[in-house]
């Protein structure tokens, strides 16, 4: 009788002890699982953040380089087209101030000054125009693209087909400028680097979306290898697509031209 009682007692204690141990082991397993998952998730988040930071640094770097290049170009333009010409004007004006010149000479000098001043005016207008096309602000994206086409068409070494079907004010004017720059940069890439002879692009707006399809028959590029070292122009385009909140797809391979599709949703 006593032994029996003892056995039941022991059994109960044992069962309870085993159950508690099992619960503890299970609990430890859950906490460890939690701890390791947390570490892993943290690591993934950190990697992602680092990647983002390095990407931003890259964007920042390319922005600065682009800015410096642009400044250099403007300085060069100002120097070549304006400063040096104004020097001539100043020299001629200096001649005019001398007392021992004849009327004929004075007339010649005056004509020369007028001629040079006119070219300076024309150059400064051109520089300003390149910096910010006035047509875009005054008449909108469609007119600006048309103008871009006309300017390029003057050179006639290639053929451009384009169609623009753009609903006025689909984009805010500052965003229109980005889109315009994208088209400008693509055209300049095709002509300067890819040596394309046939270029075609279409810009179309629908109810809530905008499509830009661009292709040329130029040299194209090796996307896989150029990925590490993209041209500044391409990085600029990518950044502008990001600002426009759009999606871009580039399809190209060496000697097969390039097709770029950009899609924006309102």
């Amino acid at each position: 009788m006593v032994e029996e009682l003892f056995n039941t007692e022991n059994q109960i204690v044992n069962i309870v002890l085993i159950a508690i141990s099992l619960l503890l082991v299970m609990g430890i397993a859950i906490v460890l699982f939690f701890y390791f998952s947390r570490n892993r998730i943290k690591k993934v988040q950190l990697d992602k953040a680092n990647l983002e930071i390095s990407h931003q640094k890259e964007i920042f770097r390319s922005t600065i380089i682009t800015q410096e290049k642009e400044r250099q170009r403007i300085a060069q333009d100002l120097h070549d087209a304006i400063s040096s010409k104004l020097n001539i004007v100043s020299l001629n004006a200096n001649l005019l101030s001398k007392n021992d010149i004849t009327l004929e000479e004075a007339n010649n000098i005056g004509a020369n000054i007028l001629k040079v001043t006119n070219t300076v005016l024309e150059s400064s207008r051109k520089i300003a125009h390149e910096l910010l096309p006035p047509t875009l602000q005054k008449f909108g994206l469609e007119a600006a693209i048309e103008e871009l086409y006309e300017e390029l068409f003057d050179t006639r070494t290639f053929k451009i087909n384009y169609s623009v079907n753009y609903t006025q004010n689909f984009l805010a004017s500052n965003l229109e400028l980005h889109l315009f720059r994208i088209v400008q940069e693509l055209l300049s890439n095709s002509i300067k680097y890819a040596e394309a002879t046939i270029i075609s692009f279409a810009l179309e707006t629908k109810k809530n979306s905008l499509y830009l399809q661009y292709n040329d028959n130029g040299k194209g590029m090796d996307l896989e290898n150029s990925h590490k070292k993209k041209g500044l122009g391409m990085i600029g385009i990518e950044n502008r697509v990001v600002i426009l909140n759009g999606k871009m797809n580039i399809d190209t391979s060496p000697n097969n031209g390039i097709t770029v599709t950009i899609e924006l949703n309102k």
Partner: peptide, 17 residues
């Protein structure tokens, strides 16, 4: 939270018995 999890899980059995 770890403390609550462990203590309540194991003591539930003790108090239940």
């Amino acid at each position: 939270n770890i403390g609550i999890f462990f203590y309540l899980l194991s003591s539930a059995l003790i108090f239940a018995s």
